[in-house]
Design a protein around this nucleic acid. Structure first.
Lengths: 110, 110
DNA sequence: TTAATATATCGTAATATTGCAATATTGTTT
DNA sequence: AAACAATATTGCAATATTACGATATATTAA
């Protein structure tokens, strides 16, 4: 059968891959960069910046939000999104662990 | 229409998201961890370790390889995979840039 | 060369993601 | 209240991913 997430993996593996997957779309990278670039946390400016519909952008925001990569707070009748440093740190340290482990490997074949 | 990668994004955005996407599956995280854990670079041991068919694992390895996250060298009649530190560093610094940019933001709303 | 072992690829079915128009919701203003 | 603005959700159609059996390819051993 097809593409089922599977529970054959550890919680850590599932959590990590969920984070990476959320970052695995150019629009979502672009959204993150845009949020970082603008001094004030952007919201619907994104719709004007990118060649995507409002519905599509809202969906991408939702995915980033549910992965805890961004968080939004209501401001007037628009919503203000920021990055969540905690989650970024989580990702960062996972990669660091990979890098360290690779360095410490005695036997190398490639 | 549906899910098309789109060329509305910068090369950087596309490259980055491709890397993250490659990490966006628990099996591929598990494979990376397994490669790091075993002293000698593993190969088909993965097939025994995980509840996935040989074809499926080979496919996941291919994706990691084409994203340059791992590299394999032929050793006897098996193949030995290692992580590619360069690519890991690329990912790491991208995340670091996000973290730094977030820190430097004067105006915060959440 | 033949048999055995290890990995890759093909074909296909199941499932997930992406994108958008239309619509609903939520908050603001008048 | 009604009208407006911003964001979210729903319902699809198009496309991509995932998984695996079957088969192909490559290297080693006999």
């Amino acid at each position: 059968m097809g593409a089922s997430k599977s529970d054959h993996f550890t919680d850590e593996q599932n959590e990590l891959s969920t984070l990476f997957k959320a970052l695995g779309h150019p629009a979502r990278i672009a959204i993150i960069q845009q949020i970082l670039e603008t001094k004030s946390c952007v919201c619907g400016d994104l719709v004007q910046k990118f060649p995507l519909s409002q519905a599509t952008i809202s969906q991408h925001l939702k995915e980033l939000k549910s992965a805890n990569i961004i968080q939004g707070t209501i401001e007037g009748n628009s919503i203000c999104y920021c990055l969540n440093p905690e989650t970024l740190n989580k990702i960062s340290s996972a990669i660091s662990i990979f890098i360290e482990a690779e360095k410490c490997k005695g036997t190398r074949c490639c």
